[in-house]
Design a protein around this nucleic acid. Structure first.
Lengths: 375, 375
DNA sequence: TGTGTTGCTGCAAAGGTTTGCAGCGAAATA
DNA sequence: TATTTCGCTGCAAACCTTTGCAGCAACACA
């Protein structure tokens, strides 16, 4: 039923190669012939078979997007932006969910490798060495993690965490707890490092609780520990945990922000809707998705790793393995207030404190604080 | 670099067809030979090229999942479940976002058709006739909509809306407004119909506001209209709109549920986290995703629409076009209370009122109220 | 010994497309 | 007029698999 190139050739009285050229190299075919072919193709509803094309060109015009957990509200905006950007460049996107499982990640890259021109690895939980190894099998762009020698898109959560801690210090907090994220998360390590430095620099006590599941229940489960730690302020690995923690504290009779201040990270849509509205570090997720796709596809004029052309993409295609770091912003809402001893103040308006090196728009790729390492 | 079947054949000293059979029909090859081939394949890291295989078998082992808006929290659980179910059956999933645009939907089905064995059309906004036409090009399963003659998975939102209205009537409300959804939404029509019938049966005044964008801002924008309508209770097309409305009413000085009761539909994770917690009709999204995949793939032992075997899938593969409807449940939380004139009562505990034909677990496929129409 | 079976393997076509090369007619140049 | 160039088109190989068919050796049976 579906029309092939042969059907079009027959209908328009030319050889199949002419039909092929009509689509892939129009300037090589006589305008009159071209018109006829186009008309027949239109009539028959012909669409080139991309799989067959991929077989010979070596470029599938597909990319893979591997996600730690689709249901985590952090990811959908990223997926949406990546898919949109890819489609605009005539690429289709395989989406796969690993359930935060490093083994599944590896298996998925293998399974997808032959079917795609590249893979976006989003918040991978596997080891760096495994990532490097996989990158020899298929071009990779890593999101939310830095891996030496590979193109990466990260968000400056270190900077964000520092802003958050300084915000808390400014409110008089001197006992600060951190709810860390899942094991293997680069982001979590980064936050921990930066927050620790900033807290100690401000003369505050700094406790780390975790690692934890980066979910609402993960956060709620920590309420008791937070109380025992006697911290007056908490920075959470992400908004979901922050919100869960607030719920948990509520059950324990602790009010936010009166008794405890809580800061999240991500600024998912949800954090504007809870009560209290969440103070959080906004990360440019959609921009990250777009940027990653651009980095993966930046060399798509170069011949693929196909047969005919140059052999092996890694040899002749010296892809610039840039590492881009996107800016973050602290968004102050209602979940932070002065430390209990100092009385209360609840800011009502929404304040935005941009990072120090802020560029034109939020989330534009930027040469922040040594963030860009071109090699 | 990537090993082909030929490399494996050379390494193990057999013909490529033997290698092929080692994987696709192991019983046809001598155990000793098989072992040798397997070893070589392992060594070389050989994985069959699915595109090449698809070319001849006619089965791509891919499916497409077309979504109205990935960023709408209604969809991620469905996507996640569908992807998981598909992968378990060794299928990969293309995900694409249409931004609620019917034109994009059509274009996407065309673009994906040759690359997949079938498409899941999730909450399509295009016309029934267009859907029918597209279904001649590629097997389709429609989610959240009923189209005669096509396999469909729907949720019984009619039943849900009725429960919601009866709940509101029981609380004494006699002026009820409905915030309808986007133009072209089957779900929205269904809700409107059922809610209208139930409201009038209960002697209540029933106002419809819309169509609207099914988003938080869409809901917030309606606060003023709701106030003017003097309704004491509102049923929203989805939770997002309900939450937006609550925000909007808040700005207008109207309290929920004291002044106005609000009911949502979907029970997204978010609705447990807002204040007040949202009373809503829970829809089994993950189950819908799983079921749709199962329906699409139920005949995957039958030869594909490939070349060699029977020609044309529609002729010999008499796919049973079942229409499955999944049960919904009203979840009563804190956003509904007695109508103002009657004083106040805020239920504290979370109640679950199942539909009348409830089966074992929530979200299991079920033969509800005339919902299943096998043809 | 001759015939038939069984178990395994190789051969080659097919699937839909791209692309280097050759061919051909017409126009441009000498 | 003879030769070159140019613009266009056709030929056929190649990409990586699957699969019907044929071949072949070993064995069983009569």
């Amino acid at each position: 039923m579906p029309a092939t190139i042969r059907d079009v050739a027959r209908a328009s009285g030319v050889h199949i190669s002419t039909v092929s050229r009509t689509f892939s190299a129009p300037h090589l075919v006589n305008p009159e012939t071209r018109g006829r072919v186009l008309a027949c193709a239109e009539e028959l509803g012909y669409r080139p078979n991309r799989a067959a094309r991929a077989l010979i060109t070596g470029r599938t015009h597909n990319i893979g997007l591997i996600i730690a957990d689709i249901a985590n509200p952090f990811f959908p905006p990223l997926i949406k932006a990546a898919e949109s950007q890819a489609r605009q460049r005539d690429y289709h996107v395989f989406v796969a969910d690993t359930n935060e499982d490093p083994i599944a990640e590896e298996e998925l890259v293998h399974a997808l490798a032959k079917q795609v021109d590249g893979v976006l690895l989003c918040s991978p939980r596997m080891s760096n060495s495994m990532i490097e190894q996989l990158s020899r099998e298929v071009p990779l762009v890593v999101i939310n993690r830095q891996v030496a020698g590979l193109p990466c898109v990260t968000m400056d959560v270190g900077q964000g965490a520092r802003c958050a801690i300084e915000h808390l210090l400014g409110l008089g907090h001197r006992r600060i707890a951190l709810l860390s994220g899942p094991r293997g998360s680069w982001t979590s390590r980064e936050i921990r490092r930066a927050a620790g430095v900033a807290a100690r620099a401000g003369g505050a006590e700094f406790t780390v609780l975790g690692p934890n599941q980066p979910t609402e229940t993960g956060g709620a489960a920590l309420a008791e520990q937070v109380r025992r730690s006697e911290a007056t302020a908490v920075l959470a690995y992400n908004d979901l945990m922050a919100i869960g923690l607030i719920e948990g504290l509520d059950t324990l009779g602790l009010r936010v922000p009166q008794d405890v201040s809580v800061v999240g990270i991500d600024d998912i849509a949800l954090s504007r809707l809870t009560r209290p509205k969440l103070t959080t570090v906004a990360t440019p997720n959609a921009a990250a998705g777009r940027t990653a796709v651009d980095m993966l596809l930046q060399h798509d004029t170069v011949a693929g790793r196909g047969s005919r052309g140059g052999r092996g993409v890694t040899s002749d295609d010296r892809r610039t393995t840039a590492q881009v770091m996107l800016q973050t912003e602290l968004v102050i809402r209602d979940s932070t207030a002065a430390a209990p001893a100092d009385g209360r103040n609840r800011p009502d308006a929404e304040l935005v404190v941009p990072g120090p090196h802020r560029l034109a728009g939020p989330g534009r790729p930027t040469a922040a604080t040594g963030g860009v390492v071109a090699s």
